[in-house]
Design a protein around this nucleic acid. Structure first.
Length: 235
DNA sequence: GTCCAGGGCCTAC
DNA sequence: GTAGGCCATGGA
């Protein structure tokens, strides 16, 4: 499995190049806020919400704690689900204040398993957002599984042991070397690939995974066959 | 007008 | 334990 997963990774990296997701140097607190705001939202809308939060000087845990509901909601509005997301941001800030003296580095100093448990116990942080935060903000190895990951690997005929979030996650974490940089780039490449080629209505011609993808091959075979049919019926 | 985007919570069965 | 509804804006 390790070689299959690395093969997919190498193909995607060669085709799309590095994605530069949340590079080192980005403020980890902003990365956490972005991870929450991006839940079921387009990244462009998240950027506009982050810009408003920055303008309103709300990008700190104590500002998130103190800001009136309306102010916080107005700032995060562009990212959608704005009432829920304002509540989630405040819940994260409250957790940080209560358990870690408001210091992100204390949360991030925990062993990954404990950090993940603390995040999952926080309102609004589910498994994907928790792994997002561990990987891109704390910069420790956690593989982020999203709907794109499931779709792409399902089409590749690479199923998880169990069809749950943790089942999908261990498909990767059990087989791959535990390297933050690898997990970071792999997830970003999966998202890119899902947007460019492996969409709900996939664009298989020219796909870098085509020769290892049974779904893509059968699609192309079917479309080639239907072209032959059309030519035959015209003749 | 319809669909979807870097999910998670809550309720009902 | 899980299927289904709900949360909501902005761009294609």
């Amino acid at each position: 499995m390790r070689e299959r997963l690395l093969d997919v990774y190498r193909r995607l990296l060669a085709f799309y190049g590095p994605q530069h997701w949340w590079p080192a140097g980005d403020d980890p607190f902003v990365v956490v806020v972005g991870a929450i705001l991006t839940q079921s939202a387009a990244w462009k809308n998240v950027e506009s919400a982050l810009a408003r939060l920055r303008e309103d000087r709300l990008l700190s845990f104590d500002a998130l704690l103190r800001a009136p509901d309306e102010e916080l909601e107005r700032a995060v509005r562009p990212s959608g689900y704005f009432r829920m997301k304002a509540r989630k941001l405040r819940a994260f800030a409250a957790m940080l204040a209560e358990r870690f003296d408001g210091r992100l580095e204390r949360l991030f100093a925990l062993p990954v398993g404990e950090m993940r448990a603390a995040l999952l116990a926080t309102y609004g942080i589910g498994p994907e957002t928790a792994d997002d935060i561990i990987l891109y903000a704390a910069r420790k190895p956690a593989f982020v599984v999203d709907a794109y990951t499931r779709r792409i690997f399902d089409r590749l005929g690479i199923p998880p042991g169990v069809d749950t979030y943790d089942g999908w996650r261990s498909l990767f974490t059990d087989a791959l070397p535990q390297e933050t940089a690898l997990f970071n780039e792999y997830h970003a490449l999966i998202v890119r690939h899902a947007k460019v080629k492996c969409r709900k209505e996939p664009l298989c011609p020219g796909c870098p995974l085509l020769d290892i993808c049974p779904t893509g091959q059968s699609r192309l075979a079917a479309s080639a066959a239907s072209q032959v049919d059309r030519r035959a019926s015209r003749a």
